[in-house]
Amino acid sequence: MPDSGIVRTRHAVHVTADPKAVYELIATAEGWPYVFPPTVHVERLDGNSRSERLKIWAFANGEVRSWTSRRELDPSALQVTFRQEISSAPVASMSGEWIVEEAPGGSSVVLLHDFTVVDDDPGAREWVQRAVDTNSKAELAALKSAAESLGAEPRALLSFADHVDIAGPAEAVYDFLWRADLWEERLPHVSRLVLTEPGEDLQTVEMDTRAADGSVHTTTSVRVGFGPDRLVYKQTRVPPLMRAHTGRWAVESTGNGVRASSHHTVVLRPDRVRELLGVDATLDTARDLVRNALGGNSTATLTLAKQAAERAAAH
């Protein structure tokens, strides 16, 4: 690593999967939160199939940071280049490239980064290099896992939504969903909740949730608010049956009020189904269980949000 100027890093992994399938996981940035552990949320600001601007929220050395990046996609060469347009200090500039190539037994993936830091500070340079190194290793390991596991069993990926129509203002519904600090008293299925707010429109939530069978699951989530119509979250600590869980609460105006919906995307762990659910359990068993448990709790939350918003509208 040089004493000053640009720092260049290179990380690589071999993936037992088709190069085009690996490239698609990299190219489809909206799916990163359930593929890459460090990524919390990706917002596509503008673009097309070859060039796009993204706002990304992700962990760097345990802290959630956000930045805006420009990406150029080349599906024929299986390459994606990126450059941060608006960085988060102490990063002054950051760019890089994903390169996917055919290799014996699958694919070779190389991830390159070039970066500089504010005032060329040595301590900041070490901090950023540690974050890049940690995140690159985590992302490549997760990319390998996702490409190989979803390639072998695509039905491990489960997405669904539920909604409730509400005759009340969007602001009241959003407030109910955002004020997780009140959920322990408002939601019967929440038995314990600890909330911190490390930044504006940013929350971390540790929560004990009671399932219909009486079991209690502890989860930790990061939530990003886009009030008054949307908030997104990623569970950073998930139940053992899941590899990943992301979600979105949305509040949309209708002619007679609003429609509040809950969207979930889950990556299941087929290798643990029989261990956790019994020798006769199948992936369908796990999909049904997770669909019913998450959907049931979400619908219960939306129903209580409906009651609160409609009470507010009546006064």
Rank of each mutant, 00 (worst) to 15 (best):
P2A: 13
D3C: 12
D3Y: 08
D3G: 15
S4F: 08
V7C: 06
V7A: 03
V7W: 02
R8D: 15
H11P: 07
H11Y: 08
A12C: 11
A17R: 09
A21P: 09
A21K: 13
L25G: 13
Y34A: 05
P37N: 05
P38D: 06
V40P: 00
V40A: 09
E43D: 12
E52L: 14
L54N: 07
I56T: 15
E63K: 12
W67L: 00
T68R: 09
R70M: 14
R71S: 11
P75D: 05
I86L: 15
A89E: 15
V91N: 06
A92M: 07
A92H: 09
I99D: 15
E102H: 03
P104W: 11
G106Q: 04
H113G: 08
V118R: 10
D119G: 03
A124V: 11
W127Q: 09
Q129E: 09
N135H: 00
N135K: 01
E139N: 06
E139D: 10
L150H: 01
S159F: 10
V164R: 04
P169Y: 04
A170E: 15
R186L: 13
R186P: 08
L187V: 02
L187C: 00
H189P: 09
L195M: 07
L202K: 10
Q203T: 05
V205Q: 02
V205Y: 06
M207W: 07
A212P: 05
G214Y: 04
T219W: 15
S221A: 15
V222I: 02
V222Y: 03
R223Y: 12
R223P: 03
G225Y: 08
G227I: 08
R230L: 12
R230N: 11
Y233V: 11
V238W: 09
M242Q: 09
R243Q: 14
H245E: 10
H245F: 08
H245G: 12
G247H: 00
V251S: 08
V258E: 01
R259I: 02
H264A: 06
H264M: 04
V266N: 02
V267S: 10
R274F: 09
L276S: 02
L277Q: 12
D280F: 07
D284R: 11
A293V: 14
A293N: 10
G296L: 02
N297V: 14
Q307W: 03
A312E: 15
A313K: 04
A313Q: 03
A314D: 03
